[in-house]
Nucleic acid binder design. Structure first.
Lengths: 389, 389
DNA sequence: ATGATTATCCTCGTGACACGAGCATAATCC
DNA sequence: GGATTATGCTCGTGTCACGAGGATAATCAT
């Protein structure tokens, strides 16, 4: 309990605003079932708290004009970060979910210490600029994350890395600065579920093919993170041939059947050093090279068959496909469709969930990081700290 | 909103009581962080509402004695039903989650109409006896459930069956009688997560081997039901050999590698008409029959390998094993353990989630049905209707 | 232009919810 | 039998949210 309801209404309004930016006060009141009187009081309180401002809304028909809810110029912000193989992206998110000042920069060095150092400076600048307005630092990283720590990042060539070092500060000042670390595919799934191709889907499955395959199951826009936040390693389901050993240590991992390594195998070529780039190359060639096309077909079947199995298990309303997924499917549309239908339990074939391309492309993880950061920063517990600042 | 907080505290107390029956008022107040004053007021209100009674608690040390919260003798109840191949079970659950008058009866006939008819009478008797006290009818059924309807029940020999017919009543009277239908394995998973071997686990995976394999992933005691309530068909993940066609229409389903049919295949015998009974028989023989033991070993490996893959994906805190699962593991403990470890991503081998036997055995589904029924009946929305009766 | 219509905003009275402080009560411990 | 401890009870206070009724600002119709 502990004044559970204290920030409930405020948090609801902020969540609604995050779902669709530029909502008007009247729209939100309708959506949440607020009386106009309460809406008045609530928005006034939120203005007072420097959470939002209200500006006159463009008029659409009869009736007294309402206002659009917008982020307060001195309102809370979240620093979203994405960490990839060759570069990192940074952005500042406001309460409406919009990203500001987004930029991507190559790593100067890829050593963990150097990257952490660069991020530490970035965070430091953000704290200098935003002060107490900065409520959360949320990092999406192309790595396995376990209990908030990176345990392995093969594309980055990292082992265990503790990213909390990017905060550096005396713990006292960090009391109300949340720090979140999440897997990039997981966060891309969140982005799809909230503002992408799976918006409104209830249960949605997002899968992303890069080197191997990662993903995320979301329920009402929230990711299943598991006991240690390490859920989503879809590539290590044993959908493949038992005979193949995966670098992860297990056998028959799906990973090995759906990416550049699989394409090389089908083409009788040696396993590529850069499976992603190799896959892009083969996919391009497939347009007029029969052998490449055939290899893509085999991979498309492996991909679709696995997706069908996951649909059997999770019963998602929609499946979104990121990374190389759309290209693989496009390169062998018929094979993909047939393998998908073939892998479904008979009765699911009547109305199988659509498999659609992801909407956010390469910005999914960054956007997802922003969203979960805002979820935290605008949650009921954290609003108390904001008001007390 | 709509008076969102109105029943919040009451629902919290009831949820706490469901988590551990016989909790004292003081314990619950501590757990929920209530002040003693508010606890007094709240319990008084709940007594008034005929939700609970309070009886003097046995004294354990110094201090003023407190009271134990118990179901009110005229309080709400839920009718829980389990529907299986050969029989059905019925029980009445009170707000503390206890089951009363539990009994199991063989079907007189297995035709859907006959079973529905029998259940309709059972529900009718319960309504006569409990009147408005009956708040929900919650059915666990050994079948695929889609949008609240049975679409397929191979063990029962049913196709599509609409179980809402067990209610029969004029819709007017049913306004505040909830009707829930769920898959038996899903509900067994709920029971394990709430009051069984996975209590307190956050994310937990329950798997049950009977004919094929079903299961459920729970998060904080709530099952992932998917977009249509049809999640949990773990047996139809393509973990097996692509060459084997499953009766479900897909290929390589895990189902075919972990039950009596798999044992028969390994023993070179024809596929059994009753895979469950056949498996029980083989498992018994395995004690002194080397060939049977070897077959069990193969099945144990297939089971453990699949579980490892699912652990990779879902990152559960614990895996619970029901049905024939414990016996299969016991019959080939070493093979199981090795295959489990082998199938995990390397870093997960450091502290893999324990795989434990389910606690509820054959009563899991019934108990799970009771729990989800109570969740509904004691939820914030439904309490309003109870107070207004 | 002017009134009708419509949608929204604002004010105010009311009641429920929950906290906190202080006191009362009932057990054990010494 | 008093000290200690844990809990229950009473009461004053502040916050939350509803509902009714009136005010306001736009479009629509004539």
């Amino acid at each position: 309990m502990a004044s559970a309801s204290r920030w409930h209404a405020v948090a609801q309004v902020l969540a609604a605003l995050l779902r669709r930016p530029d909502a008007t006060r009247a729209e939100i009141a309708r959506e949440l079932g607020l009386t106009s009187g309460f809406a008045t009081e609530l928005t006034a309180r939120m203005r007072e708290l420097r959470l939002i401002t209200e500006v006159r809304a463009p008029v659409h028909g009869r009736g007294r004009p309402t206002t659009v809810l917008a982020p307060h110029p001195e309102g809370p912000v979240v620093l979203a970060v994405e960490l990839r193989h060759a570069d990192y992206a940074v952005s500042v998110a406001t309460v409406d979910g919009r990203l500001h000042g987004t930029r991507r920069r190559p790593h100067r060095q890829r050593r963990p210490e150097a990257v952490v150092q660069a991020l530490r400076r970035t965070v430091g600048r953000a704290r200098d600029r935003y002060g107490h307005r900065l409520r959360a630092v949320s990092i999406a990283v192309a790595a396995t994350v376990h209990d908030g720590r990176v345990v392995q990042a093969s594309t980055l060539g990292w082992g265990e890395v503790d990213l909390t070092a990017v905060l550096q500060d005396p713990p006292a000042g960090v009391r109300d600065l949340a720090f979140l670390v999440g897997n990039d595919a997981t966060l891309a799934g969140v982005a799809e579920a909230r503002t992408g191709a799976a918006t409104g889907a209830g249960t949605a499955l997002h899968l992303i093919v890069e080197v191997g395959i990662g993903g995320c199951l979301t329920v009402d826009g929230f990711p299943l993170t598991g006991a240690h936040g390490a859920a989503g390693e879809y590539g290590h389901l044993p959908f493949g041939s038992r005979g193949r050993r995966c670098p992860c240590g297990a056998r028959g991992c799906w990973d090995l059947d759906v990416d550049g390594r699989a394409l090389a195998r089908h083409l009788g070529e040696p396993s590529p050093a850069d499976p992603y780039g190799y896959a892009v190359e083969v996919l391009r060639r497939a347009a007029d090279d029969v052998r490449a096309r055939r290899a893509v077909g085999a991979v498309a079947r492996a991909l679709a068959g696995g997706i069908a199995g996951l649909v059997n298990v999770h019963d998602p309303g929609v499946v979104t496909l990121g990374g190389l997924g759309p290209a693989i499917r496009l390169g062998a549309a018929e094979a993909f469709a047939r393998a998908y239908a073939d892998g479904l339990i008979a009765y699911r074939r009547v109305a199988p969930p659509p498999v659609v391309d992801a909407a956010h492309a390469e910005w999914g993880p960054l956007r997802g990081a922003a969203i979960v950061g805002l979820d935290r920063a605008l949650g009921e517990e954290f609003l108390g700290a904001w008001a007390a600042r």
